[in-house]
Design a binder for these strands. Structure first.
Length: 269
DNA sequence: ATGGTAGCACGGCTA
């Protein structure tokens, strides 16, 4: 089964590029981020004409996630547990019924967190975007812990907005104080990994320049000024089922691309 | 310190 995460940066603008990629790559399960659409305005025909089941969790203007699957989906849930007041559409889950195993697929769009607002003691300002990011990551950690405790095989994949290590950025120095890379952000990501999850890409390659995002600005793609922020994290069961993992970098050089590219995992489920 | 680009939706925020 080919499982993919792709931050498409706006479903209404991405139609042609997305359909070209869908027809060539033919993912079995696709989780999308930044659909930037309400559910009713999502052009479902892109997927339904190709035989996909589509589940969306949208909001107006920003954010929004979706799951498309050729395999049956059940028990779809929307929203990350832990804060009933969180109105941002950034998380959904569905169970994919594979021929051999069921897999809980958790699609996520982790908050960017910029600008970083700190008080005089250096603590994140309550109500600020950086505090929201860290709180969201703690909720994600708790969700992973709950799935592990239930022994539910799962994969958490999406746009994490986290650069895990220096080798995951072309210019790490430039990101030192950024919410995507500053130490507390990386520590929060590590604490999720340290539950026993596997970074699928790093389990299969140590290749340098394994980037998934290049800014539209300042010719970042032409200069290969990229960062690795889209990740596939596997629970121990899922890590055993991982066959291969890669990044479809060429998509970034095609016409009217997203600023992210797909990251995929071949899973023996 | 700013600007550089893109998306949604049509003004300004988000990234």
């Amino acid at each position: 089964m080919k499982l993919v995460s792709f931050n498409i940066n706006g479903i209404k603008a991405r139609g042609p590029a997305l359909t070209r990629w869908l027809d060539s790559f033919q993912p079995d399960v696709l989780v999308m981020q930044e659909i930037k659409s309400v559910d009713d305005a999502f052009p479902r025909e892109i997927f339904e004409e190709r035989g996909y089941t589509l589940e969306t969790h949208g909001q107006k203007g920003f954010n929004g996630v979706a799951i498309a699957s050729l395999l049956p989906l059940r028990d779809v849930s929307r929203g990350l547990p832990g804060d009933d007041d969180d109105a941002q559409a950034r998380y959904m889950e569905a169970t994919v019924e594979g021929p051999q195993h069921n897999l809980r697929v958790c699609g996520l769009y982790l908050p960017n967190g910029n600008p970083v607002e700190l008080d005089e003691a250096g603590a994140p300002v309550a109500g600020g975007k950086y505090a929201y990011k860290l709180a969201w990551m703690e909720r994600l950690r708790a969700r992973a812990e709950a799935l592990l405790a239930a022994e539910t095989p799962f994969v958490m994949l999406g746009d994490y907005n986290i650069i895990p290590q220096a080798e995951d950025a072309a210019r790490p120095k430039a990101w030192e104080n950024d919410a995507l890379y500053r130490l507390p952000s990386r520590e929060a990501f590590r604490s999720i990994l340290n539950l026993g999850l596997t970074d699928a890409l790093r389990a299969r390659t140590q290749a340098p320049e394994s980037y998934t995002f290049w800014d539209y600005q300042a010719g970042a793609w032409d200069r290969n000024d990229g960062i690795r922020i889209d990740h596939i994290l596997l629970c121990p069961y899922a890590a055993d089922w991982l066959v291969e993992c890669g990044i479809d970098r060429a998509v970034r050089g095609e016409e009217k691309p997203s600023d992210h590219v797909p990251i995929w995992a071949e899973m023996g489920v």
